[in-house]
Design a binder for these strands. Structure first.
Lengths: 364, 364
DNA sequence: CTGAAAGCGCTTACAG
DNA sequence: CTGAAAGCGCTTACAG
């Protein structure tokens, strides 16, 4: 650290200008009650001394830090999805002239709330005015955070549903998104549609529900590959491909729980000379950048990741202003992005499908 | 905000325990000069009151914030590359029990340093102990940052070379990396090798120099597509493909300035039924996740992005401890990752190539 | 080992 | 419009 002695303070500015420190402070804070001449002199002294006010001292008095904290639980920091959410957070924060601090935290779901040890940024107060909780969040952490008395908002899709009403949430509508995707496939003449994804993950479970709802609505038999497996998403897709191909009848379409699974699936199929979409149609979920790179590009469901980040900031700001409002759960819509990985089957579309289609999904 | 009145302070703890505030403070700071009994009582009171020390007040006295700031200049926040760097930063920071704050800043390269307006986190002091500058950085900003008197380190590849010696830098060795990639292609029998990339970008320019150096070393004629173009990297690659195919003789290999350019190229080629690597070999740069998804996977040069982030933190920490040490420029090596997008041509490899090969690149 | 006091660098009523 | 003073919530010599 630099020698702390030579720091120049508001007192130095006051002395040089020949005014009291209060006046300097007023200039700093744009108080209207300062004469133009005085202000000009003070400003000159500030410039001459290269004075920069001390943030700590100001915030100590103001009782707010103008800083929000992005807390990522139990996750490698900032993989694509969270990077995008963080982007949205950053953008919204910047517009509000606030700052954002990041912290990663790791804890087992079974640890008693009181035993979760927090980084100083959460343990002390004054660091941050509000929290955005993302990553894999468990109830014990939420309980712990509540004791902090800091307003917070939860990115809800990664959270296992319970306690819905006791805090603010932002989430995307995975259920409706997958329902729409399924309906779209049905409308294109598909009847034998597989859902692929590890449903022990809450966000995948939600998609499965959307899938099942649509299949049932059309009296179709669900076919699923949903076991839990270690390894990457892409590997999951590769494995799922072999599962699917072991079936007596090959399905005409597959809904992958996310885009990487779709890529893994696709790669396996290609190795077996099964073409997408000619031999089998494929729909992803999330719409990550890679979806555009495959050939043909992947039809998928777009999740408004940056929008989620922005909504978190918005909701958090509102909560800070109105601490006693009822808790809200903002649900952002997804969007079915039609690209090239789905084939329209030459089948008669039943009237009921036609009719329902109008209500259930809106292709771009 | 919550009503600020009911905040409990160190004084409340002291009163409840029946000791002075100094003693409470000593317990908080793990000073050894507190009797076991007193400490126990104080701790009990802290727990009972849910006391959390005020970070502002502590830092005001300590004269350090335990916070580093990641400053991203003139860039959409956190695209892949920077997300990975930030990952490395976060990891290193966490190990040091520090915090990291993020801020984006935008300014034209031509603005006088004094006129660049800074976010409060940089304008005030006390917010952060050190800066990591990333993004597209220009000399005017560096000059401005210097007036702040905060230690900083620059992620150097995005910076246009000049003033190399007047501040700390961390960078990857793009020149050597591309030199190795080029040499590798030559060793595989390629002679007609195209370099593709917008060389108005400093990091691409560096790659071009590595390419040229290798080509000259083997007395081969460089072929380049390096014009500046608006649009995405992928689009750049697509455009470059058409440029390349308009040549009288089709080259046998292409070095793309980064992976997205390679993907764009690849896609264009595929549309013309030109296969990789059978008809043309392709090498990328960076090694982003997508490189593994294409089929066959892309041979590319891996940039240690997380390592860059970690090195930045390490260098910055060192600078903070030794403000007067000479400036350093840490250069991290890249690694040629051999995958499936390069074909070995059935040509006689000259002796000179064989010999040089040993020195110039080390395939994984 | 511990208390009382000064002080960190600001802001903000309170008088004028 | 402006100065003197109290105070934000801590830490840290200074005495004991």
């Amino acid at each position: 650290m630099k020698a702390p002695r030579d720091r120049i303070t508001i007192r130095d500015v006051a002395r040089l200008t020949g005014v009291g420190v209060g006046t300097v402070s007023r200039v700093l804070n744009d108080a209207k009650s300062v004469s133009t001449v005085t202000r000009k002199h003070v400003l000159a002294a500030i410039r001459r001394l290269h004075f920069r006010p001390n943030a700590q001292a100001r915030r100590l008095l103001r009782r707010r830090s103008d800083t929000l904290c992005f807390v990522l639980s139990n996750r490698a920091f900032l993989h694509v999805f969270h990077a995008h959410i963080f982007n949205g957070v950053e953008r919204a924060i910047e517009a509000l002239r606030q700052n954002v601090v990041c912290v990663a935290i790791h804890y087992p779901p079974s640890l008693p709330p009181g035993d979760i040890l927090l980084p100083s940024i959460l343990e002390e107060h004054g660091w941050t005015d509000g929290l955005i909780l993302a990553g894999a969040i468990y109830p014990n952490f939420i309980r712990r955070v509540k004791t902090l008395g800091i307003p917070f908002v939860v990115y809800g899709n990664n959270f296992a549903m319970c306690e819905r009403q006791s805090f603010d949430q932002v989430r995307y509508d995975g259920l409706q998104g997958e329902f729409n995707a399924t309906t779209y496939l049905i409308d294109r003449g598909h009847r034998s549609i597989v859902f692929v994804g590890d449903t022990t993950l809450p966000w995948t479970l939600e998609l499965e529900r959307g899938y099942l709802r649509a299949m049932r609505a059309y009296h179709l038999t669900p076919i699923e590959v949903t076991a839990h497996r270690p390894g990457s998403e892409v590997e999951y897709g590769e494995w799922a491909a072999s599962e699917i191909l072991s079936h007596r009848r090959r399905p005409t379409a597959v809904l992958a729980g996310n885009d990487p699974i779709a890529f893994g699936l696709w790669r396996s199929l290609r190795r077996q000379s099964i073409r997408v979409p000619e031999d089998i149609s494929l729909v992803g979920f999330d719409d990550v950048n890679e979806a555009l790179l495959v050939d043909p590009p992947l039809t998928t469901v777009r999740v408004p990741m940056e929008g989620i980040g922005e909504a978190c900031v918005k909701q958090l700001t509102q909560r800070m202003e109105h601490p006693c409002d009822p808790f809200v759960c903002r649900v952002l819509p997804t969007e079915l992005v039609l690209r090239g990985s789905v084939r329209t089957l030459a089948t008669t579309t039943s009237n009921s499908v036609r009719t329902r289609k109008m209500k259930s999904y809106t292709p771009g």
